[in-house]
Structures are given as C-alpha cells and as structure tokens.
Amino acid sequence: MDGAFTAAFGLIASGDAALMQIIGLSLRVTLTAVAIASLIGLPLGAGLALARFPGRGAVIVLFNALMGLPPVVAGLLVYLMLSRSGPLGGLALLFTPTAMIVAQTILILPIVVSLTRSVVEDLWAEYRDQLRSLGASRLRAVPTLLWDGRVSLLTGILAGFGRASAEVGAVLIVGGNIAGHTRTMTTAITLETARGSLSLAVALGIILMGLTLALNAVAWGAGQWARGRLG
C-alpha cells in the first residue's frame, strides 16, 4: 500500500506523460460536455420555467427523473445510437472522445435544465410584476432572470461538472478505455485497479479528489463573494 502511494506521488511530481494525457483528456471531455449542456440547458430550463403548455408537468418530471439516470444507461443509449448498425453508425464516432462528450452531455443536461427551471421559476415569482411593469416581455425576461440567478446557476453547473467527472459507466461504454485515445481518469482507475497496478490508480484518485475539493472551494467562494457583492 505504502509503495502505491509513494509511486503515485512520484508520478504526480514528475508530471508523468501518460498521467498528464489522461487528465487532459478527462478535463477536455467533461468541460466540453458541461459547456454544451449549459448552452442548451440554461435557455431550455428558463423556457420551461416561464412557458405554460399542456404536458409541461410531465416534461418537468421527466427531467427531474433523468437527473438520476445511471451513467451506464446513458452510455448504453449512446452506444446503441452510434454502433455500426445504429441510426448514427455512419458517423463512426463510437470509441472516440466525441462519443464520450455526447454521453456526458446527456448526463449533465437534466441537472442543468432542472436546476435552471427551479431557480428561474422562483425568481420569476418575485420579479414578474416588476419586469412587466418595466416593459419586459416573457421572452425578454429570460436573459434577465438567468443573469440575476447567475450565482445559483453556477452552483448547478458545477454540480453537473462533478457528476460527469466522477462517472465511469458512460465513458467506459462509448469510449472503450483505449490508451492514449479515450482513457479518462475514472476508466483508468477501474482498469489499473483490476490489473492490480495501484500506483497510477492511486495517483489519479488523488487528483480526482483534489479536483473535486478545488471545485467545491470555488463554488463556495463564488457564492460567498456574490452574496457580499451582489446582495
């Protein structure tokens, strides 16, 4: 055990190339997925908060339920879509980082949509009369509400980032854990542990923990700062 930790710190300290490559790919995949999910989820969630249409309740329940979607199921869905015999098989995206980004976007999107909906709905209840009085249409209110809810929304986006960077099921199924190509921190930990080579697994585990800690520190700090600064 001690040996594994010593070797792990050695890998981190020396900036081992394979290790750095894995970290880089993980961050690239997850951050891209977070960006895409936010781009789609923020307006979608806000629209869902303000729009009234038949079946709205069902859509809300669906997105809430999808927040608990097991990553392996998301992976399986994307696998079925992208596999050679699937509807999008022609794109040859299976076992590429792009496929992993798609799968993680599917995991993050419900979190961003549901949280945005609830934040914007609460704000809208408080702001509706005032914004209408100032001359804002429902559509024009959307960016205003997103901006005024920015602190809470950031927390939700960070939660999405946390979920995606911690999951292994989806990226393993659609990425295939190919060394140097689709191997991420979580898939590498799974593989290396199974093979009994613990030092890389422990090094990646430490980095993942550190990342999570840093993320939460940033989220908390941003919240504190905003409360003091924005009211």
């Binding site: 408080e126 009369d129 005032q130 914004l131 100032l134 001359g135 804002a136 901006w147 005024d148 924005l230």
Partner: peptide, 21 residues
C-alpha cells in the same frame, strides 16, 4: 411597488434597464 424589485446589478444599470428594453 409596495416592495420594489431591484435587479442584481449596479444602481446605474438598474436605471438603464427599462430604457434598453
């Protein structure tokens, strides 16, 4: 309003908002 809602931005930006609308 009885309890006016101010936007989470600066005083000047609050004055600017309805004009830009």
């Amino acid at each position: 309003f009885q309890r006016p809602v101010l936007l989470r931005r600066s005083v000047a930006a609050n004055l600017d908002y309805p004009l830009s609308l």
